[in-house]
Design a protein around this nucleic acid. Structure first.
Lengths: 226, 226
DNA sequence: AGTATACACGAACATTTGTTTGTGCCGCAA
DNA sequence: TTGCGGCACAAACAAATGTTCGTGTATACT
């Protein structure tokens, strides 16, 4: 369990409001704005809890100056809530694990309680294709089994959680018979599913629908060289 | 020429200060702080120029509220200055053009005056490998000639400007004899340079140093699916 | 010259806003 | 009970801060 369990409901509300406010307006809210939104009658109470949040390491304050606060750490969402992080900064999505041939994919929900702050990665908005960061997760590719899809060891793939796919979309699919995970373009054909590699020099593979379990749609890929 | 040429020196200073301030403190400066830093004696003058910047589309203001401003567009740096953009948000680097076999690479300096706001792309910090965003640029890959390096049409490559490279680094190189641009791993050998594709199923090519002009080092690759 | 426009200055003003102080409630331990 | 610490409330205070107004100075145009 993490430190945010020590935050009161009121403090959680404040964190959430501050985050949303900064996300929307680009600058932090004033003490009175926080109080009004969180049903706190007195500015001193807001101030009090703000200092609590500072002690807890969630925010920093610049004394004397109006709106002099910034969010430092993770925001504890609602119990089942969104994994939202502090602004300013790029979007952040959960980096939930690795994908490799021969291993099943662990989805965010399966390991939701194990996600730490370090398991998040910054992703620029344009790589989310308009989807909300909460329905998106990231996987690190292990091994070169996806090389026929132009994806190699160490790449990070950004996916949206979904169990179906439209024709032509690239998906992460679990092939139960072959016992492996793969990233391919998805085509539902008459009696079968065609999984087409991105690299056209490779041949497509054909599987039965019952053998193909879509885990998510690939939105983008990031690769770093060191 | 672009709109920022219409900004006075004073307004450019203001933009730069506001950007740095937000970068550093996480919230916008007050009118008086701007004035003090930019040697403006009167708050009304700051206010006046602030409204000018709004008209020019560089910032937005929320009336009545303190520090109620956010940066929207590009910041005109110094004359030869950094191409810095507004916080909060991911880093932004110049997307200067396209890279394709048979075409030379246009470097930022060559086309510096043509960079528009739309020619910038958000890049998360970890993809800059610690380099400053000002020495980094981005190229859109056209064609599939880099497919042997696991890079395909539509990919965006992030590069750092440099004319040499260490062994093993992936570089963008212009081969004058072959009259084409390529992305390969760079190895300086006895009498020649070996350019090694990332995909090990492809063979390396060997060129004479005089034939190989390094344009930049590849830091990372981004790929979006639509 | 006369006028208009852009830009700048300083001062006064009206809010906004962070800080402080005094008080009260509640649970818990001595 | 008494006392203490955590938390909350309201009011008042002191700065910080955005806004407005009257004025001045160039520059260009008629």
């Amino acid at each position: 369990m993490k430190a945010f369990n020590r935050l009161s409901q009121r403090q959680q509300n404040m964190m959430r409001f501050m985050h949303n406010y900064m996300q929307e307006r680009g600058f932090p809210p004033s003490i009175r704005e926080i109080g009004e939104e969180c049903d706190i009658g007195s500015t001193s109470v807001v101030n009090y809890n703000l200092n609590k949040l500072v002690d807890a390491g969630y925010i920093e304050r610049s004394g004397k100056v109006s709106r002099g606060l910034r969010i430092i750490g993770a925001i504890p969402g609602l119990s089942s809530g969104p994994r939202v992080f502090g602004a300013p900064g790029p979007q952040r999505v959960a980096l939930v694990g690795r994908i490799a041939a021969g291993e099943p994919i662990a989805l965010p929900d399966d390991i939701g309680h194990h996600i730490d702050e370090d398991d998040y990665i910054a992703v620029p908005p344009q790589m989310l294709s308009g989807y909300d960061e909460n329905e998106v997760f990231a996987l690190t590719v292990r091994g070169n089994s996806m090389i026929d899809s132009m994806i190699q060891d160490g790449d990070i793939v950004i996916l949206r959680q979904q169990n179906t796919a439209e024709n032509g979309e690239m998906v992460a699919a679990w092939l139960s018979e072959e016992n492996e995970t793969t990233l391919k373009h998805f085509y539902r054909e008459a009696e079968q599913i065609r999984l087409q590699p991105a690299n056209q020099e490779y041949q497509p593979i054909y599987v039965h629908p019952s053998n193909c379990e879509v885990k998510g749609k690939v939105l983008s890929v990031m690769r770093n060289f060191h």
